[in-house]
Design a protein around this nucleic acid. Sequence first.
DNA 1: GCCGAAATAAACATTC
DNA 2: AGAATGTTTATTTCGG
Length: 478
Amino acid sequence: MPPSKKAQSPSSGASASQGMSPPYRQGDAATAASEAEAADLSLSLSASFSKAEDEELTSLSWLHESTDLLNSFSHSGLRSVSPLQDPDGQHPRSPSSSSPSPDDPLLGDPHSAYDLAAGANRKPPYSFSCLIFMAIEDAPNKRLPVKDIYGWILEHFPYFASAPTGWKNSVRHNLSLNKCFKKVDKDRSQSIGKGSLWSIDPEYRHNLIQALKKTPYHPYSPGLATPSTSPPTLPQTFHHSPPLWSGSPLFRKNGGVLLQVPRGVIQNGARVRNQALFPVIRPLPVSPVGSRTSAIRSSLGDYLSRGQDSPSRYSPPLCSEDLQDDHTYSTAKSPSRLCSPSSGLDDDDDIIAVEIQSDVKPEPREIPLDSHITSATAAANYISQQPLRGQRRSSGPGAGTLAGSSLWTKNRARGISDTLPLKKRRAAAVEKPPESDDEEMKEAAGSLLHLAGVRACLNNITNRTAKGQKEQKDALRN
DNA sequence: GCCGAAATAAACATTC
DNA sequence: AGAATGTTTATTTCGG
């Protein structure tokens, strides 16, 4: 395509994803909540998480309930923050390109981050994948034809009503390229007219949830403020915040008043301190934390202990705190993918965060914790399936990460059969052992398997005996 | 400057 | 036939 055409594109260069870098500013009254509040919250969270154990991941209800709880927490002395806006009102500013200004009218306004008025002319902060995910999740049957996905996006994001029509192409592009989405077999869904129904691949569902957790409006997105300049406000465990959207059960349950925005408008989930929605996040060893943090961590610790006591039970999706690994749901190779459908691993499988000790930065990685990943082979396989650096363009056409991670899969799949449809090739690729011969990756695999294998084995053992579990955990932490 | 992630554009195929 | 849908490739942008 001629570059000139690109230049003419009104939306070129203003991708939503790029606006998704944490455009937050931390509030200055975030330390107001009392110790007692933190303790209470801790207890409540524990109860909430305990309840979550009994729920299935097929529903986000556990998420929303926790959101509710933490929303109340957010009103107990923590100040809301808002995304920054470009002077043109189109895109959130990245923190790097802006300096906090006390005069910013958005600062502290809990409802201005992405409200109806702004939404009409501001590009949504959600990637297309997230938009599609939300649309499908909002559907009664969790499946939608493309046309209805358009409709949902239009309904909830007025921006697109006046946006160039290319966004529809992008939606279709995402649906096709993103392995998180899959077409419903048309045999079972006839009479919907042209096209197919699209649904979320359960295998990648938590990846999408993780993507949503990266809503740019989350005030404590890692890129927001450096720890040195920001007093400890929220616990580390509050690092990711799934947004609420109008169709979410919680939002509905509260009659749309939960977050006090007009019904039908996408809610800025960042205003909700619901970090602990993902209770199996294992807090990393970080710099000194406040008592609130400690309280939450204590709560999480309890949850973790209980969760490991019953490993077969539900365990909410883990969110790695590693910014790189977790940067997108697609790059974070789905742990379940690791074990592939044939392994029987599903969303209910336990996942552990492997904490790689580093003087510079901890790099937890998601490793499925089940019988399939307790061996060095499994860990090595996990590593070997990671996309190799430098393969991006040379390995073939790619459209980014959604596309990019599937890119790797696809390219591998392509070697299997160029004649099969893309997604069938993917499926075939999953069954085929990885062919990575990259020595560097093997070395990395060795390193990681040591960490992952040791930990996974430990956990496996501890799953058998509650007593052993506690001891192993202690040993692990030491 | 490189890389990753995502958006965007477009060509082409398929389906209705 | 034409529009909608689906797939694929190429390119661009921007933050890290």
